[in-house]
Design a protein around this nucleic acid. Structure first.
Length: 431
RNA sequence: UCCUCAGUAGCUCAACGGUAGAGCAACCGGCUGUUAACCGGUAGGUUGCAGGUUCGAAUCCUGCCUGGGGAGCCA
């Protein structure tokens, strides 16, 4: 008899098949019982009628605890009452391993309890849906980049010094020297872009900030493309295209998962309909002041400011040309207005905050050296980075997408901790 | 680091100065189409920890611990 996956069950209508998985739930009504079986690819209801079953097997079925691993044989039957469209008329059940006193019930649980049991929480339909969407988001991002000639170049995770100096880094011992967990692969991608033209890195990044909000993880994944001969305008166009491609792909492949998450799908469809909004930093400040926010030209946006700006639109909005003083040392000044840099943040709608930060980079040797000094960065440590301007410097740009924030927005979640299999949060590193 | 809210049964919560309770889970029983099934029963507690006020504290006060949400910072 063929062992099949629940995902493919429709191909076996009327046939007898074997299924291997776990018992998700059981409902019984005296002489009939329903076993909900999951195998990682889906959920299916198995039906057993006492009068038509082997008494020993019927009794076994009635006694198997939730989340025990089982192997079952049964006949696939079309049934309109099933959300899947099919049921399995069970004929045999083999208990592989009994799960006694499974901690997670089908009722509500608190966040603390669920996070302590993240290794089991992942088994629930909602978490499975999110993990599958995460998989699709990653694949769509990479497919888009690969199809446009980008090359994946892996950045190191152990780094000798702060990339940008601002954020708190995790320190570790590197054979007697200090080393730090990477907070960005960008500087290395600039080197790679001078070798391969268009590149990206995709990996975990670490921030030792004592942040605990629904928008922060200590360890998160970031995709960072970097492109030689690409300037500010084209940089934004590329960001818009890749974001739209990912959303279109998720809408195509995950309607059911999005519905399970109770995502308002029309909000995502709207994003595809028109170009992303654009707003200058200057205009943003003017708007915020008109709304009574306490903010001056030269200040960075706080979270309430960002939300107010994002709420002006029902799609994402680029905020661009920030004061150089509040941005990273490597960002290129606008030639028309050197006090602002050719940088943009992409703010997601619906209060999901910044999902992309990008900029054109300084390609002039003297200016970059000057900025390194102004920021009190160790010149010695940046010699290799300066070499990129010494030897065949070109205009280049790049950006970073925060994977978990992007997924949180796509899925319409209230907290990004559900978008990563094992979230690292402030004071929480178990399991 | 700061602000704020909360810790009571395995889980989710109620009791707000006068004998600690419910739903779910567990266990026993009933039910032939259930969808977090339902119905009846049994068992389950050092109320986060330490101190204080009071005739009497889960409840009021002080300190500590743990967690949630937020600020700052960021993706």
């Amino acid at each position: 008899m063929q062992t099949v996956l629940i995902r493919d069950i429709g191909q076996y209508e009327g046939k007898k098949v074997t299924l291997k998985g776990w018992l998700y739930n059981r409902r019984s009504s005296g002489k009939i019982q329903f076993l909900i079986i999951r195998d990682g690819t889906g959920f299916i209801q198995g039906v057993m009628v006492q009068a038509e079953s082997d008494p020993e097997i019927y009794e076994l079925a009635a006694s198997i605890p939730q989340e025990s691993s089982i192997e079952v044989q049964g006949t696939v039957k079309r049934d309109a009452r099933s959300p899947l469209g099919y049921e399995l008329v069970l004929e045999n059940i083999v208990l592989i391993s009994e799960a006694k006193d499974y901690p997670i019930s089908l009722k509500e649980h608190g966040v603390d309890f669920l996070l302590d049991h993240r290794h089991l929480w992942l088994r629930t339909p909602r978490q499975v849906a999110i993990m599958r969407i995460r998989n699709t988001v990653v694949k769509a991002l990479r497919d888009w980049l690969d199809s446009r000639g980008f090359c994946l170049v892996d950045a190191p995770i152990l780094t000798p010094a702060a990339c940008e100096g601002t954020t708190t880094l995790f320190e570790t011992d590197y054979f007697g020297e200090k080393a730090y967990l990477s907070q960005s692969g960008q500087l290395y991608m600039e080197a790679a872009a001078m070798a391969l033209g268009r590149v990206y890195c995709f990996g975990p990044t670490f921030r030792a900030e004592k942040s605990k909000t629904r928008r922060h993880l200590i360890e998160f994944w970031m995709l960072e493309p970097e492109m030689a001969f690409v300037e500010h305008e084209e940089n934004l166009a590329i960001q818009e295209e890749i974001v739209k491609y990912v959303i279109r792909t998720v809408l195509e492949k995950h309607r059911q998962d999005l519905e399970l998450l109770q995502r308002d799908i029309s909000r995502l469809e709207k994003v595809l309909e028109k170009p992303f909004a654009r707003m200058s930093y200057d205009a943003a400040i003017e708007y915020l002041q008109s709304q009574g926010h306490d903010i001056q030209w030269g200040d960075d946006f706080g979270a309430p400011d960002e939300t107010a700006l994002a709420n002006l639109h029902d799609g994402p909005v680029f905020v661009e040309r920030f004061p150089a003083a509040i941005k990273a040392f490597y960002m290129k000044p606008d030639p028309q207005r050197p006090e602002v840099v050719l940088a943009a943040d992409l703010l997601a709608p619906e209060g999901y905050g910044e999902i992309i930060g990008g900029s054109q980079r300084i390609d002039d040797m003297d200016l970059l050296l000057q900025r390194i000094k102004e920021h009190n960065l160790p010149e010695e440590a940046f010699q290799w980075y300066l070499d990129l301007r010494r030897y065949g410097s070109v205009p280049h740009s790049g950006f970073g997408i925060g994977l978990e924030r992007f997924i949180t927005w796509i899925c319409g979640l209230s907290h990004l901790r559900e978008t990563i299999p094992f979230p690292r949060l402030l004071n929480r590193i178990y399991p």
